[in-house]
């Protein structure tokens, strides 16, 4: 029973990880860029949501589209003015530029919203769902729903739409895609827009689960064990990886926290990351890449 409860909790929080990882995978799939600023996009999305709901007093059905639109714009700006100029540079530069971006964005948020804690307006019904003796607030259920919807949308998008196919083409070989008449820049830009939107959704959900604060962006780090486990270019991997990491953390936190000193659940994910690198570096669902000269 206790184990089942741990697993349930793990799945509920894992769906938030999955959402964040989906944004990371999306950008990697379309541009081969590892985005270290994904957590900051999540946080900014949540702050914009807060501002439009509380400061501007918009009703949720207007505030949500506004938030997603603005977050998409921020994603686009990041691509247009920073990543576009360097996406094909050495890997170190790409990683470092997104790290620079994350520091810059965090500074910007400090400037605009400060470092206080904000209580995000509850946008989901207060009633809870009773499962296995746990009263789960509805927000967890909705984050699972959102994660699944986003996942299905993206899978559909990449498989069946021209744009999605173009994105995959761009990721595989930009020059070839360009010569086939694909507007490489608009495709890449769009993937950042989508990623910004997914991040904002994750941010709003996360802010509904806990407090809204500048340190929320740290959740972005969680995306890395998830994508290493699931595979950098696999949407399915992001979802399953997110859930698995969530469950492992919860089980470890539950069973080990009373025995082992220190917060073991925080590091198990990264220990798994190292193990995966040793035995199956492309992850559970990723494709093995051939190093080109």
């Amino acid at each position: 029973m206790l184990l089942l409860q741990f697993i349930l909790i793990g799945i509920s929080i894992g769906s938030v990880y999955a959402l964040i990882a989906l944004g990371t995978v999306l950008i990697y799939k379309a541009t081969r860029v590892i985005n270290f600023a994904q957590g900051e996009l999540v946080m900014i999305g949540a702050f914009i949501g807060y501002t439009s709901l509380v400061s501007w007093g918009l009703p949720i059905f207007i505030a949500l589209p506004v938030t997603l639109l603005l977050s998409g714009v921020i994603g686009y700006l990041a691509e247009r003015f920073v990543l576009r100029r360097i996406a094909h540079g050495p890997l170190i530069s790409v990683i470092m530029v997104t790290l620079g971006l994350s520091i810059f964005l965090k500074g910007g948020v400090t400037g605009v919203w400060g470092t206080s804690m904000y209580s995000f307006p509850k946008i989901f019904p207060e009633s809870t769902i009773n499962l296995l003796g746990i009263k789960l607030p509805q927000v967890y259920f909705w984050s699972m729903v959102v994660a699944v919807i986003i996942f299905v949308l993206f899978v559909f998008f990449f498989k069946y739409t021209d744009l999605g196919l173009a994105m995959r083409g761009v990721a595989d070989n930009q020059k070839a895609a360009a010569s086939l008449g694909v507007n490489v820049f608009s495709v890449v830009g769009l993937s950042w827009v989508f990623s910004g939107i997914v991040a904002a959704l994750g941010g709003i959900l996360l802010a509904n689960i806990s407090l809204l604060n500048i340190n929320m962006s740290d959740v972005g780090l969680k995306a890395f064990p998830v994508v290493i486990l699931g595979g950098f270019d696999s949407l399915l991997g992001a979802v399953i990886g997110g859930l698995v990491i969530g469950v492992i953390e919860s089980v470890a936190g539950g069973y080990l926290a009373t025995i082992v000193s220190g917060a073991i659940d925080q590091v198990v994910a990264f220990a798994i990351l190292l193990i995966i690198l040793l035995i199956k570096p492309q992850g559970l669902f990723g494709t093995k890449e051939v190093e080109r000269l």
Partner: peptide, 24 residues
């Protein structure tokens, strides 16, 4: 003060980006 502390972080991030883009 808070704004300027923010500016400092932004400057640091921006410097990293600018160096990478324009002065590798």
């Amino acid at each position: 003060e808070a704004l300027f502390a923010a500016l400092r972080d932004m400057t640091f991030g921006l410097l990293i980006i600018l160096f990478l883009l324009f002065e590798p």
